[in-house]
Design a protein around this nucleic acid. Structure first.
Length: 701
DNA sequence: GAGCACTGC
């Protein structure tokens, strides 16, 4: 086997690193950068003054690369070479090359902001621009100034982004390391198809009939399209004339597929048989399928985005970027020259696609990240001026500050509070960490740990419609609890407690249509949270007991009260006379209860007056997902706080945001969105809502 | 009366 390309550049790399605090490495696929950079610097003596940290955006990558490097150095994993990922730390005093997820390094900088144990920090796959990598990039820039004499930072990036990263680090050198990819011929469509599934299928059949052996990887946007495609493709292949071409098998590949079905794509095709793998962008970076020679690229991807002006998430189908398109094409050139069929014209690639995907930091709610930055004990961070490679909008940062203020993580001047510091220690969204802290005060910590773990693991409970229920009962399956009418958080608690009573049997999950993977994950999260809470808590904590329902709190009052405090930034009030809600915040939105909710109406058919929600999601309409009923007396203090809120003070007075007009216009969405109410009732609600919002918005009046 | 790309602490 040929020597890895990167080793021919060893002297050049060592020389450049010696002379510069920051170096950008553009390492193409197959260059060996992930395994070799650390070893090169190890050989050059950088591990004498500290360890080398290499971050990866994914857990599996951190583990497999660490294994490989340990093997190459002939040492046992966890000794000289180790890795750290959530729930698992395989390092020791001897470890001098440490692979870890970017999130883990970020956590480490919480207790040691200068990261003094490291002489070298390598941010690998930085071009993927994960939220954590972006924050690390900003922190590295600061750190370089403070530790210029004894820290080296290496950043690996994609071709299109190298110059930008270099500029960010005041023009640091950029080294290009060629890869070992085979050439991939790109074939463009003359126009964009109107029906993607159909067009993908035609192209796939074309390849099958006319092209020599080699597997086909098809990129689509989601499970629905994939399932359709798999079904149709199998049908069409069966109808092909016997003996006219080789055999074929078709596999779907996406994230919600159970692991045992995902693994199928790793076994090679039987002789004289072509494999078709119909995948989401999971096959772009996370999973590498061997044997692929042909790629069919739809040019689209499903992306979750957060809108800071409404506080809502949406899941949109958007065009991919050029970096993404090239990454997809590259999947065809791993074993020999390949072909990539792009179902869009060349001009679309050149003129419409963005250079790179919009970084996650510009598509997410930043409450957690802002809290994190505020909690790092380096005094000179002004969050609105923090130096990001691609800064998030001011609106997004202000949204984060408002949210943090409402849940007591920062005070009215934007300073982090004691509560905020404790919250930052917990690997949870701020609302959930606030809930835990309040639950500890109120004496329902154990229950809150369960709920937050279940939400954190995103456990999905499938609706048990009457038909399914009947069927299950006949099969003597247990029936899942329903939250006793209080809502989805309580249901999650009850489901976990049932699983606990079933001794955490995986079969119990399968029987109840729950994903084993996510239930196991929530158990891990719960254990980790318990440990952290015990470490940071003062006084005795009740984390293990009370798994079973306590008589004294059968309507979950304490827990719901803790949730109300934690979700102080996610409250909603029911509209008069019907079951629509408006959110109670600095921008009120008209929203509906998501139909999947188990929240119950009273005997008059009315839903609770006040609820807290876990998230707002805009699909066919704006919905609140995961709800819990709360009481008005718990809500009132939060509303008082809302009235006092002043964004200029929160953002440290750096710049005014006095655009009241904008706020007013954006605050209230169109009355059209309100449903099942007569025009009169609607108008009444509208006025009430508008008035109450305006009162709340005019601070000081 | 709806619908879930992908990661991760």
């Amino acid at each position: 086997m040929a020597v890895l390309p990167i080793l021919q550049f060893e002297d050049k790399i060592a020389e450049t690193v010696a002379e510069n605090p920051v170096v950008v490495i553009i390492g193409e696929t197959g260059s060996g950068k992930s395994t070799q950079l650390s070893q090169i610097l190890h050989r050059r003596g950088y591990t004498r003054s500290g360890a080398i940290a290499v971050t990866q955006p994914r857990r599996v990558a951190a583990v497999t690369v660490a294994r490989r490097v340990a093997f190459e150095l002939g040492s046992r994993l966890g000794e000289e070479v180790g890795y750290a990922i959530r729930f698992e730390d395989r390092t020791s005093d001897k470890t001098c090359i440490k692979y870890l997820t970017d999130g883990c390094l970020l956590r480490e900088s919480l207790s040691n902001p200068e990261l003094n144990q490291y002489s070298v920090i390598i941010l690998d796959e930085a071009h993927e621009r994960s939220l954590n990598t972006d924050i690390l990039l900003g922190l590295m820039k600061r750190l370089i100034n403070r530790r210029s004499s004894n820290l080296k930072v290496l950043i690996t990036s994609a071709t299109l982004d190298g110059v930008k990263v270099s500029k960010f680090f005041s023009g640091c050198p950029v080294l290009n390391i060629p890869g070992t990819l085979f050439p991939v011929e790109k074939l463009y469509s003359t126009e964009r198809p109107t029906n993607y599934v159909e067009c993908c299928m035609k192209t796939a059949l074309d390849v099958h009939v006319h092209e020599p052996p080699g597997d086909v990887l098809i990129f689509m946007t989601g499970q629905d399209d994939i399932d359709k495609m798999v079904f149709k493709l199998e049908e069409r292949i069966q109808n092909l004339e016997e003996g006219s071409c080789m055999d074929a098998v078709v596999f779907p590949l996406h994230g919600s597929l159970p692991p045992e079905l995902q693994i199928r794509v790793f076994s090679p095709a039987p002789p004289n048989c072509r494999r078709f793998i119909v995948a989401t962008n999971i096959a772009e970076t996370s999973l590498t399928v061997d044997g692929v020679v042909y790629v069919i690229d739809s040019g689209f991807v499903k992306q979750r985005q957060y809108n800071p002006s409404t506080g809502m998430y949406s899941l949109d189908i958007v065009q991919i970027s050029r970096v993404q398109a090239d990454q997809r094409a590259g999947r065809a050139g791993r074993t020999r020259p390949g072909k990539c069929y792009r179902l869009y014209p060349r001009t679309v690639y050149d003129e419409e696609f963005l250079d790179a995907t919009i970084p996650e930091i510009q598509r997410s709610s930043l409450a957690g990240s802002v809290l994190y930055l505020k909690s790092i004990s380096l005094s000179d961070i002004d969050i609105l001026k923090f130096d990001f490679l691609d800064p998030p909008s001011r609106e997004s940062l202000e949204d984060a500050l408002r949210q943090l203020y409402l849940i007591d993580a920062i005070d009215e001047n934007g300073e982090i509070t004691e509560i905020g510091k404790a919250m930052a220690e917990l690997p949870l969204e701020p609302s959930l960490s606030r809930t835990l802290i309040e639950a500890n005060e109120l004496g329902c910590l154990s229950q809150a740990l369960t709920v937050t773990s279940m939400l954190s693991a995103e456990v999905a409970i499938r609706p048990t419609h009457s038909k399914i229920k009947e069927k299950k009962r006949k099969q003597s399956f247990s029936k899942l609890p329903d939250g006793s009418g209080w809502g989805d958080h309580i249901q999650l608690l009850q489901v976990y407690e049932s699983w606990d009573r079933a001794d955490y049997d995986p079969n119990w999950c399968t029987d109840n249509d729950l994903q084993v993977r996510s239930m196991m994950f929530s158990k891990d999260v719960r254990k980790q949270l318990s440990q952290i809470v015990q470490k940071i808590g003062k006084g005795p904590l009740d984390v293990e007991s009370a798994m079973r329902l306590k008589k004294s709190d059968k309507d979950y009052k304490k827990l719901r009260r803790a949730l109300c405090r934690g979700y102080g930034n996610q409250l909603a009030e029911r509209m008069l006379l019907h079951n629509g809600y408006h959110t109670l915040g600095y921008r009120s939105q008209l929203v509906q209860v998501h139909p999947s909710s188990v929240l119950e109406a009273d005997e008059d058919g009315q839903l609770p007056d006040y609820v807290v929600y876990h998230e707002l999601i805009n699909t066919s309409r704006p919905f609140m997902r995961n709800l819990c009923a709360v009481e008005i007396s718990w809500v009132q203090p939060i509303l008082k706080k809302l009235e006092k809120m002043n964004i200029d003070k929160l953002s440290g007075g750096s710049g005014a945001s006095e655009n009241n007009e904008t706020i007013e216009n954006e605050t209230i969405s169109s009355p059209k969105q309100a449903v099942d109410a007569s025009a009169k009732v609607m108008a009444l609600c509208w006025e009430t809502l508008k008035r109450s919002c305006l009162t709340r918005l005019c601070h000081g009046h």
